[in-house]
């Protein structure tokens, strides 16, 4: 369970570039919630995910994961609770390390790392089976450097790494935005599969309204650093893209300014 309580964050305070990125965000996720997040440019979608991940400290408010107040924990200490996949396929993996070594790094997320082997023989067999299930042929390239993989393969691998050790919350930050449509669909399908099989609690930022409606059991819309619309269950299933556009204009009093979102 994840709870955000009145999170606020302003960047470049007191300068000409001052930007109120999060303006009192509160949300409570139940176990197994799969929330899709939409909103215009600069609405605070990725910023909210970064606040949860602890990329920087928030100005005020609290973040609680499974009853633990993590507001004061730096990024690397919060990692034990979180699985993350980023927009840029380069961000989630170590390019100069082998596929199996990347998996081994992820397997130890949240553990104390001392002088035992960074990867064991037993793990290699386990990863072989796991990669086979991806059906990308990666199981035969376990000792290849990740830098040799395509963007889609890297995102699939990052997804596997993020969930190798079951996270309390899985954060997907536009993780298919940099991929071609076919690959994006594949990675999204894989995300769905892992989330439902492992019964994960997840948040997914997307610019694709259709995806936001189809996937997950809950949808939130953000604008100006706030959650302006929160819908779940049957009501969410019945949503259409025009519904969402209307909702946006109604709540924010303006047109949606995200071109990518309108086009897709």
């Amino acid at each position: 369970m994840l709870e955000l309580n009145d999170i606020r964050k302003t960047f470049n305070l007191g300068t000409i570039n001052e930007k109120r990125a999060l303006n009192g965000v509160s949300i409570k996720l139940e176990d197994g919630d799969f929330v899709t997040i939409i909103g215009g440019n600069g609405a605070g979608k990725s910023t909210m995910l970064n606040a949860i991940a602890g990329v920087w400290p928030v100005d005020s408010g609290s973040i609680t994961i499974n009853g633990v107040n993590v507001t004061g924990l730096p990024e690397y200490k919060r990692a034990r609770y979180l699985g993350r996949v980023f927009q840029d396929p380069m961000t989630g993996t170590a390019a100069t390390m082998e596929i199996q070594e990347n998996l081994a790094l992820a397997k130890r997320r949240g553990n104390k790392r001392m002088l035992s082997w960074g990867i064991t023989k037993k793990e290699k067999e386990e990863y072989h089976e796991l990669l086979k299930s991806l059906d990308l042929g990666l199981e035969d390239r376990m000792t290849s450097k990740v830098g040799l993989l395509s963007g889609g393969q890297r995102q699939a691998l990052t997804l596997l790494m993020a969930t190798l050790k079951k996270p309390e919350v899985l954060l997907l930050d536009e993780h298919t935005a940099a991929l071609d449509p076919k690959t994006a669909a594949k990675v999204l399908e894989l995300s769905d599969k892992i989330i439902s099989e492992e019964k994960l609690t997840a948040m997914m930022v997307t610019h694709n309204m259709n995806d936001a409606i189809i996937h997950g059991n809950r949808l939130i819309m953000m604008n100006d650093g706030k959650i302006i619309y929160d819908v779940r269950g049957e009501e969410k299933k019945k949503l259409t893209v025009p519904d969402l556009l209307n909702k946006f204009e109604e709540v924010s009093g303006g047109k949606l300014d995200n071109d990518r979102m309108l086009l897709s």
Binding site: A79, R80, T91, A94, A95, T96, A104, R109, N111
Partner: peptide, 17 residues
């Protein structure tokens, strides 16, 4: 491994704890 990951991609390293 932590040193190798840090040198290669510090964002990834932090995300992996």
């Amino acid at each position: 491994f932590t040193i190798r990951a840090t040198g290669c991609n510090s964002n990834m390293a932090r995300a992996q704890g």
